[in-house]
Each structure stands twice: as C-alpha cells, then as structure tokens.
Design a protein around this nucleic acid. Structure first.
Lengths: 109, 109
DNA sequence: AACAGTACCTTGCATTACAAGACTTGTGTG
DNA sequence: CACACAAGTCTTGTAATGCAAGGTACTGTT
C-alpha cells in the first residue's frame, strides 16, 4: 500500500464531480478539461477522461456536438443537459456532506 | 449512472483516511469504528471494513492485539504504527490538496 | 510521400466497496 | 444439556473505474 495508490482512490468520484462542473460552465472539449484540471493540480490522463465522458453521455448527463477545427481533427464539444444539472445539484450536496463528515472525524482529538 | 454509485466512488480512499485517523487517536476495535463513522454520517459496513483493516495491517500501518471481552468473543484492538503515523501525515496533505483543487474548480464561474 | 501534431478511442489490469452469508465465542433459558 | 441469541470477525463473488499502453483518424508541412 503506497501513498500514490491511496491518492488515486481519494480522487475517484471527485473527477466526475469536477468534470461535470467544468462542462456545466460552458462548451468545452477534452483537452480544455485536461488543461483546467491540471491547472488545479488534479491530474487526469486521456485513458481516464474519455471513458468517463462516454459514461456521462450514455447516462444523458451531457451531450456533445462535433465542431471542425482549423488545425487538426474535429473536436467533440460537450455541454450539460437538464438531467445533468439536476445530478450535479445532488453531487454538490454529497460533496459538502463528505467534507463535513471528514472534517468531523479528522479534527477530533 | 446513479447518485448512490457516485457517492460510493467519492468515498473511496476517504474511508481509509478516516479510519486511520480514528485508530491514531487510540485503541479501538471494529464496532467502535463503525459507530463513530456512522455518527459522522459516513456509513460503512463490515464487508468493507474488515478487508480494509487487513490491508492496513499487511502494510504495517496498524497493528492489533486480541483482548478478551466480558461478554462475547474476543476483540481485535487496533493501534497505529510509526509508519502509519507518517503515512497519515501524507494523507492529510493529499486531502487538503484535493479539497483545495475541488474548491478551485467548483467555485469558478 | 513521409512526417509531425492534434484529437479521440480501446484493451487489459489492479484495486476496492458492497451484499450476502459463514464461523466463533459467550450468555441465558428451558 | 440443548438450543437460541448476541457480539465479533471473516470470506466469497460482483461490479465499478482509474490508469498504462497503444491504436485510429484527420490536417498541414517539408
């Protein structure tokens, strides 16, 4: 058991939450998301992101449209759906609750 | 994809963190931990906790001793090791960083 | 044509929370 | 004693998912 594995475990689920937030702010494509997450020190790689985006799309939480690029292959621009917005509300509450619970436990003497 | 599954994912790794904190405060056995986690609204069941405790023990992060109970089978009382304390320091930093990163992303307009 | 850059996707592996149920020890009741 | 019950520990099988590694496809440059 090493720290990096536990760090990976801690991030699970959080990624989905953060990515929904990013998409909810406006149309973005995968590289945009990776850049923003990396800037916030939350590293994510393509092998993680693409399957996650597909899961979100299959669950009707996000949708996408193809947009041609001026330099290179076309991009998938994602946006959040009505259902996705509602789901995000739930996740906001879950996150607040988790932070609160963890705070309770880790700050106790 | 439903909320409860995402909630489970969000909790992964956090459980390990919280349980290490609880053990770090003093000797406890499994039912103590379940009670404290439940009080803090972080539900955990036995099928999750026992394998986790075994992983922590195999990684030398915690140790235990058998203590006979006055009513019922003997209990395993866990305590944290030197190595476990150092590991917990790392996890504290990881958690702070994750909260910070998530805050950065989810509060952005 | 060959190459490099950008973007999207797939396969296989390891980890782990959970549901369900089993095993062990001690206590009390008939 | 035989049985039920409670408390505590543990095991098996399933499903989900982050990641490493590699593959596919389109565009522009030399």
């Amino acid at each position: 058991m090493n720290a990096s594995n536990t760090q990976i475990q801690m991030r699970k689920g959080l990624l989905e939450f953060c990515i929904l937030h990013i998409i909810a702010r406006g149309e973005v494509y995968a590289s945009d998301m990776i850049e923003e997450l990396t800037d916030a020190k939350m590293i994510v790689v393509e092998g993680t992101l693409y399957p996650l985006l597909n899961r979100l799309k299959n669950a009707s939480l996000v949708s996408y449209k193809w947009v041609e690029s001026e330099s290179g292959p076309p991009r998938k621009y994602y946006s959040i759906t009505e259902e996705g917005s509602r789901f995000l509300e739930t996740l906001n509450e879950t996150w607040d609750s988790l932070v609160n619970s963890t705070q309770l436990i880790t700050s106790k003497k």
